[in-house]
Design a protein around this nucleic acid. Structure first.
Length: 423
DNA sequence: ACTCCACAGGAATTGAGGGGTG
DNA sequence: CACCCCTCAATTCCTGTGGAGT
């Protein structure tokens, strides 16, 4: 077989594993969709929309389910001439303030009416709201604002979530009926909201539970039957993949990724079939890949901090406290021309690395003499960090140095080992 | 029981950088 | 052009706190 042969004994030409692939029906979510439908039913009957708060972890069908049910609603509404429905969907990821969300909504609405977009900053807040309500009034009818990843919005800046549902009663709009569908994977987001917002936003609350192993199995076998050639999947593969994904996250996306990766491995190894071993190695590869990607996507500051902790680890000085990290960090920052942050600020970055579980932390307390402090160490292997930071231009000199140091260490260990053997 | 350390982490402030209007 | 609005990283300042030493 030639290296670039298009023959593929594992995968078929169909590609139900692609990220953008939307299944024609949503499996294992009938109950949730029924509730969803009920919550939306007033719209079809010509009443004002209820506001909906939808929560559930990633990959449990929130976004897909929303698309699916809103398309059905749109179809249904087309038959009634007394109802017009407009849906705007935006993702609030990276939008931390009401202001930014409002701007994005305005631009989304303007792209529907084909008008010019507005700049992302510069206007007074009230002006942006006015623009938003103006656009809504121009479109008219029922307007549903789907705010995906709504937890991106700061809890103390939730003005917009209050203004949209109340726009009608506050006479901000006259010719339309706006409603919000908020989607979040963080249930706690609700707790931080101000009481007024909570009251208006959560007319209806829907929960998408994680898939259990059985449900994942059913989803996987449905997709696998299209994606793989007959008989290439061994019997224990699907149960294993669904069990792993159910245990970890209950995410269909994760389960599908796992199965796909396992298939890729089988293909690369010229294996006749996909086996449970492929699933196992696929899982560890995916986990490692996620960590590396996460590290690579961090800022230069984070990279320098990681290098500092890594260096301390090579010296056998981890777990280590903030103060020590900062000392080394300042030196490292200088060698790679990064403006060093003050300790307080570096500590914020460290906390962030901790939150993203690249680090582990322990509380220490030495009372009267040495007070209370935290100790950190790497939560991932030294090799993983080094590999991730390879070819990151900014910290190249540091990485080289650390690599030499590590090699020195391993050589020394080897020598130690030799000596022991000769003893 | 009380003291006192070191620093975690909240709050206020600043200043640069995006852009607006008249 | 002068002047204003919003954002966000960074800095400075400050208060709160757990528990070993006294």
């Amino acid at each position: 077989m030639s290296r670039f042969s298009r023959e593929d004994h594992i995968f078929t030409d169909e590609m139900p594993f692609r990220e953008e692939y939307t299944p024609s029906s949503l499996q294992e979510r009938t109950e949730e969709l029924d509730d969803y439908e009920k919550a939306l039913s007033p719209i079809a009957r010509g009443y004002s929309p209820k506001n909906i708060f939808l929560y559930g972890k990633t990959g449990v069908g929130k976004t897909v389910g929303t698309h699916y049910i809103l398309n059905e609603l749109k179809d249904a509404v087309e038959d009634y001439d007394d109802v017009t429905l407009t849906v705007v969907t935006i993702s609030c990821r990276n939008l931390s303030s009401s202001y930014q969300v409002a701007i994005k909504l305005v631009n989304e609405l303007r792209s529907i009416t084909g008008r010019k977009k507005i700049a992302s900053t510069g206007y007074p807040s009230e002006k942006v709201y006015n623009l938003l309500f103006e656009e809504m009034d121009k479109i008219g009818g029922t307007i549903l604002c789907v705010l995906d990843e709504i937890d991106g919005i700061n809890n103390d800046d939730d003005d917009l979530l209050y203004r949209i549902p109340r726009a009608r009663t506050n006479s901000d709009v006259e010719h339309c009926d706006p409603g919000i569908i908020g989607i979040s994977n963080d249930y706690k987001f609700k707790e931080g909201l101000s009481p007024e917002v909570l009251d208006t936003l959560c007319d209806e609350e829907l929960n998408f539970a994680p898939y259990d192993a059985e449900e994942l199995h059913s989803i996987l076998s449905h997709r696998a039957s299209n994606a793989f050639h007959d008989g290439v999947i061994e019997d224990d593969v699907l149960p294993l993949a669904s069990a792993r994904a159910a245990q970890d996250s209950g995410s269909a996306r994760q389960a599908l990724r796992l199965l796909y990766k396992a298939g890729e491995l089988a293909r690369e190894n010229d294996s006749e079939t996909v086996t449970s071993e492929h699933v196992e190695s696929a899982q560890s590869l995916l986990e490692m890949g996620k960590v590396k990607e996460g590290i690579r996507d961090s800022t230069s500051q984070d990279h320098v901090i990681l290098c500092s902790i890594l260096d301390l680890a090579l010296d056998g000085k981890t777990p280590t406290r903030t103060r020590t990290i900062h000392e080394r960090y300042e030196k490292f920052a200088e060698t790679v021309n990064v403006d060093p942050l003050v300790q307080r600020r570096m500590y914020d970055r460290v906390s962030e690395l901790l939150r993203r579980s690249f680090l582990d932390m322990d509380v220490k307390n030495e009372g009267y003499r040495s007070g209370r402090y935290y100790e950190y160490e790497l939560a991932v292997s030294i090799e993983t960090v080094l590999e991730a930071l390879q070819n990151v231009e900014r910290v190249d000199p540091l990485v080289n140095r650390l690599e030499k140091k590590r090699n020195g260490n391993t050589n020394r260990n080897k020598n130690k080992y030799k000596q022991k053997r000769f003893d």
